[in-house]
Write a protein that binds this DNA or RNA. Structure first.
Length: 228
DNA sequence: TATAGGATTTGCT
DNA sequence: GCAAATCCTATAA
């Protein structure tokens, strides 16, 4: 890792991702990733549209995938619950960069996975809170230590454990289709009427904002209490 | 160096 | 329903 990449976590991650391409060989012609313009939109829009998309991770031979059923938006302005609201720090650095990058942060000895949205210096993101396991369930069960499919990726930290997402994924370019990426829905399109909008889970401020999006009726959402 | 608190999860009552 | 577990980050001293 040279001096330039050391000064930029994002660049460093890109370099690592580029190197891993030949090692892991996860980039295949068949993979359809979302391009940067998809993420270059307001977090509430991206959060809503990501429902039904496929979150994929591939580490070595372990490929796991799940249908996104719950997301939350975090705004660049007027949102005290957004980490970037406290300013630009090493932790929030990635949010201030280009859209389409992974923002992974540690909390309570666990991790949460976000996608950076909007433009540079406009720090917003979408938290992926839950997916419905679709592929690689055996890998998820091994990583989680639980067999119950319903609890494999129900909740942001559980999801990260099942998908093997940790701090090394922070700053990863999700448009590359390497290690972790998101694919458009192949079937079961989510209709507007199937989307439920509620207050966010767990935040200790900005309770008034309704930025949580769930596929109504899904058994795989993280918070089973009826929120408004 | 110390401390408080967090976009959580789990197990026990 | 409640509280412990667990550890990183930011802030203050």
């Amino acid at each position: 890792v040279d001096a330039k990449s050391r000064s930029s976590p994002i660049r460093a991650r890109q370099l690592r991702a580029g190197r891993s391409k030949s090692v892991r060989g996860t980039s295949r012609p068949g993979i359809r990733t979302l391009d940067r313009s998809y993420f270059q939109r307001p977090p509430a829009v991206v959060a809503r549209e990501l429902l039904g998309h496929l979150l994929v991770s591939q580490v070595g031979r372990a490929r796991v995938a799940g249908r996104i059923v719950e997301t939350e938006g975090y705004l660049a302005e007027g949102d005290s619950a957004c980490h970037a609201a406290r300013g630009r720090t090493p932790k929030t650095e990635v949010m201030f960069g280009p859209p389409g990058m992974a923002y992974v942060y540690p909390i309570h000895a666990k991790y949460c996975f976000n996608v950076v949205t909007e433009d540079v210096d406009h720090p917003s993101a979408v938290l992926i809170r839950a997916v419905e396991p679709i592929e690689g369930i055996r890998w998820m069960q091994r990583r989680r230590g639980f067999l119950d499919v319903r609890n494999l990726a129900r909740g942001p930290a559980r999801l990260c454990q099942a998908f093997s997402i940790d701090r090394s994924v922070n700053g990863l370019d999700l448009t590359l289709g390497q290690t972790v990426w998101i694919e458009p829905p192949s079937a079961r399109i989510v209709r507007p009427g199937d989307v439920q909008v509620t207050r966010r889970v767990g935040v200790t401020s900005a309770h008034e904002l309704k930025l949580r999006f769930v596929i109504a009726g899904s058994r795989f959402v993280s918070d089973l209490k009826k929120r408004r």
